[in-house]
Simulated assay, not measured.
Amino acid sequence: MSRIDTTKDFVPVRIAILTVSDSRSLSEDKSGDVLVARLLEAGHELADRRLLPDERDQIADQLRTWCEDSGVDVVISTGGTGLTGRDVTVEAHRDVYEKEIDAFGTVFTMVSMQKIGTSAVQSRATGGVANGTYLFALPGSPGACKDAWDDILARQLDYRHRPCNFVEILPRLDEHQRRK
């Protein structure tokens, strides 16, 4: 089904981590810690890390800032993907997306179903692309971040992963903005 092509070199990507929470600080951010540890262990670079409250405009502004930053290839947010009134991360992501990666949410739900059963329907994980940058919104639990990284993102952010991966098409994400 999938494999690592050992004839190719690993290509690190620069990843920014955003935690969305009204109640946590960076020092209490276990989900962000999980993502940082995993991306560094995989050989990627931590481009930036922030924590913001559940405020749609602030989240979208930070996403846009990172999408304009040539030092950021991927943004992963954690938190604010649920169903309560303060959960606005998905809407903020969609305010920024040029294209949504529809299958990301579907695959995340499939992975979650194996771990938490039908409770997976309460997550609105999403992925998209804007200005040549990948954007992923994950639930705020450390377990959900582990599952998303271990079962989806670790593979798709590995240039050697076959049959295909996000990294190999990264240079082409903004080709529509270049002159011909």
Rank of each mutant, 00 (worst) to 15 (best):
P12F: 04
V13D: 03
V13P: 02
R14I: 04
R14A: 13
R14F: 06
A16Q: 09
A16W: 09
I17D: 09
I17N: 08
I17S: 10
I17Y: 07
L18D: 04
L18P: 03
L18I: 15
T19C: 13
V20T: 09
V20C: 14
S21F: 07
S21V: 07
S21R: 01
S21K: 05
S21E: 07
S21Y: 06
D22A: 05
D22E: 01
S23R: 15
S23T: 15
S23V: 14
R24I: 09
R24M: 06
R24C: 09
S25F: 12
S27D: 15
E28C: 05
E28L: 10
D29I: 09
D29W: 04
D29R: 03
D29L: 04
S31V: 02
S31Y: 02
D33M: 12
D33A: 15
V34L: 05
V34Y: 04
V36D: 01
V36T: 14
V36Q: 13
A37Q: 13
A37M: 00
R38E: 08
R38D: 09
R38H: 09
L39S: 03
L39E: 01
L40Y: 00
L40A: 02
E41V: 00
A42F: 00
A42P: 03
A42W: 00
A42Y: 00
A42L: 04
G43Y: 08
H44T: 07
E45N: 08
E45Q: 15
E45F: 10
E45W: 08
L46N: 06
L46V: 12
A47I: 12
A47Y: 11
D48H: 13
D48R: 08
D48N: 12
R49H: 08
R49V: 10
R49T: 11
R49D: 01
R50N: 11
R50T: 10
L51F: 03
L51Q: 14
L51V: 14
L52P: 04
P53C: 09
P53D: 08
P53K: 11
P53W: 08
D54G: 04
E55W: 00
R56H: 08
D57M: 07
D57R: 12
Q58L: 15
Q58N: 11
I59A: 06
D61W: 03
L63G: 06
R64Q: 13
R64V: 10
T65Y: 11
T65D: 14
W66A: 01
W66F: 06
C67W: 01
C67E: 02
E68Y: 05
E68V: 02
D69E: 09
V72T: 15
D73M: 02
V74T: 07
V75E: 00
V75I: 14
I76G: 02
I76Y: 02
S77E: 05
S77A: 11
T78Y: 03
T78V: 10
T78R: 01
G80L: 05
T81Y: 01
G82L: 09
G82D: 08
L83N: 04
L83E: 02
T84F: 07
G85Y: 03
G85M: 09
R86H: 11
D87V: 07
A92E: 00
A92W: 00
R94W: 05
R94Y: 10
R94K: 15
D95E: 14
D95V: 00
D95F: 02
V96R: 03
V96Q: 03
V96D: 05
Y97P: 05
Y97M: 12
E98T: 08
K99R: 15
K99C: 13
K99A: 13
E100F: 07
E100H: 10
